[in-house]
Nucleic acid binder design. Structure first.
Lengths: 158, 158
DNA sequence: GACAAATAGTTGCAGAAGCAACTAATATGA
DNA sequence: TCATATTAGTTGCTTCTGCAACTATTTGTC
């Protein structure tokens, strides 16, 4: 049983704690909204899309399992299964690495590329409503820069 | 099979898409780091902590199931089970609402309050390493303000 | 060269979360 | 007032995900 309900300067209202909660909340809400829209309009899960984007951005047009997992913050086991599903759906394929037989590359199929392009169009509209309508261009740049710093830190301490 | 590996001005490098990915990534990494530390040092999952914080911050020292679920971006079913576990662990208790027999309040137990306070201490140290070491006080304030705007938007469109 | 250590990925298993169907209670309104 | 719609929460089921154990390959060391 709780008494002394709350006090506004309590330690749980500490700026840092609020910030972490807010970061989690906004990421979750945004992903939920964007994910629902993508699923509806393009028929693919946002998780698929994020993987395809990372591969597409890569120099060689392919990434190793570890690389995709790391970039999208998945465990290796989780990524194995996610890629399984994407292979089943026909969006990506596994490609053996010729120089290291432990490594497996993941590359987009033609269908995957097409899907990615179609989904991106719709996605951008959605993001305009979710991001651009609330944050100015400058703010978005600032936000991005701060998140990059944060992520670098989390990376280093991981 | 992918060709034309990437091009730096491609649409998938659009500022908005990058931003969403970054938001997801930084939230995930931060929660992972902070969650591991909390589990290790305080023995409780970060999800428990987040729920306890919301209840503690509330005016009345208690929230309905819906309120907790909404604030932490859970489904109602998911929250039912999360609270089940927290009740089992002895941190919270369900309290019937006297005026509406459909609603169920969730309140902290004494053990929950103690746990929350202990965990908060350790948590703050961790957050200093994860947040404060990389972002200045001003930046953190800016970040918070932008996330608030974003969340308000996601809310409205949900 | 051979054995130990490290690395890449996959698999079994279990826990956590969402959806949809359900129960129960309250609000609406004809 | 009684039927209907809405709201709050829980439960069954399925999917997703992480952890730990495992296999296979490569690297390092003696």
């Amino acid at each position: 049983m709780a008494e002394q309900p709350n006090s506004c300067d309590s330690v749980i209202n500490d700026e840092r704690i609020v910030l972490l909660g807010l970061l989690a909340e906004s990421a979750a809400r945004l992903q939920r909204s964007a994910g629902e829209a993508m699923e509806e309009q393009s028929g693919i899960p946002l998780a698929f899309y994020e993987v395809m984007v990372r591969i597409r951005r890569s120099e060689a047009g392919r990434l190793t399992m570890s690389e995709v997992a790391n970039e999208t913050v998945y465990s290796s086991g989780g990524m194995t299964r996610l890629i399984d599903r994407m292979v089943d759906a026909g969006f990506v394929e596994r490609v053996d690495c010729p120089t290291d037989r432990r490594t497996v590359f993941v590359a987009l199929t033609d269908a995957g590329i097409a899907q990615l392009e179609q989904a991106t169009e719709v996605h951008l509209d959605q993001l305009d409503r979710l991001l651009s309508s609330r944050l100015s261009c400058d703010e978005r740049t600032q936000l991005r820069d701060m998140l990059v710093k944060l992520t670098a830190e989390a990376d280093a301490l991981a």
